[in-house]
């Protein structure tokens, strides 16, 4: 049953984090935006703390317990660099990623985020179709 419970519980935690952050700080959780603020804004304390928590939380679970699916074999650094550049630049130009548009934007029923999410998911599906 773990293949059902883990995605459900994981998704609930992601949503809970976004909800608590919104209610207390008045901000939406958007990882690409927080990264940009951490790098380029004067007022960077909150986004930086959030990202630190994300990295600790996201790696602690994998270290403490056995994941059900193994990670892929290490892929080419050039593929990672190309992917990172596209994700880094694209999320700034489009003003959001899977969290900001995908989770928070859809929750707010923002038409802009619905269009963005449909666009990046379709482009990602086509990319996987062409490369796998």
């Amino acid at each position: 049953m773990n293949h059902l419970y883990n995605p459900l519980l994981g998704g609930l935690l992601i949503g809970l984090a976004a909800a608590i952050y919104l209610i207390t700080s008045g901000r939406v959780v958007g990882i690409s935006g927080m990264l940009a603020q951490s790098l380029f804004n004067k007022n960077k304390r909150l986004p930086l703390i959030f990202l630190l928590g994300l990295i600790i939380g996201g790696s602690a679970y994998g270290i403490l317990t056995q994941q059900t699916t193994p990670f892929p074999e290490i892929r080419s650094p050039w593929l990672m660099i190309l992917s990172g550049l596209l994700v880094g630049y694209g999320t700034r130009l489009g003003n959001g990623c899977t969290s900001g548009h995908g989770v928070c934007g859809l929750a707010r029923l923002s038409p802009r985020s619905i269009v963005a999410t449909a666009t990046f998911i379709s482009c990602a599906i086509i990319t996987v179709l062409l490369t796998h």
């Binding site: 990882i31 690409s32 990264l35 990202l51 994300l54 990295i55 996201g58 790696s59 994998g62 892929p72 892929r75 593929l79 990672m80 190309l82 992917s83 990172g84 550049l85 596209l86 994700v87 880094g88 630049y89 694209g90 999320t91 700034r92 130009l93 489009g94 003003n95 959001g96 990623c97 899977t98 969290s99 548009h101 802009r112 269009v115 963005a116 999410t117 666009t119 990046f120 998911i121 379709s122 482009c123 990602a124 599906i125 086509i126 990319t127 996987v128 490369t131």
Partner: peptide, 26 residues
């Protein structure tokens, strides 16, 4: 166009590696 182009570039990058920004940081 900015929203559409940016989201398209992000989607291509995401599909290439399977990493979006949060998971990428971890």
């Amino acid at each position: 166009r900015k929203l559409l182009t940016g989201s398209a570039l992000f989607g291509i990058g995401w599909g290439l590696s399977g990493y979006c920004p949060g998971p990428g940081l971890t």
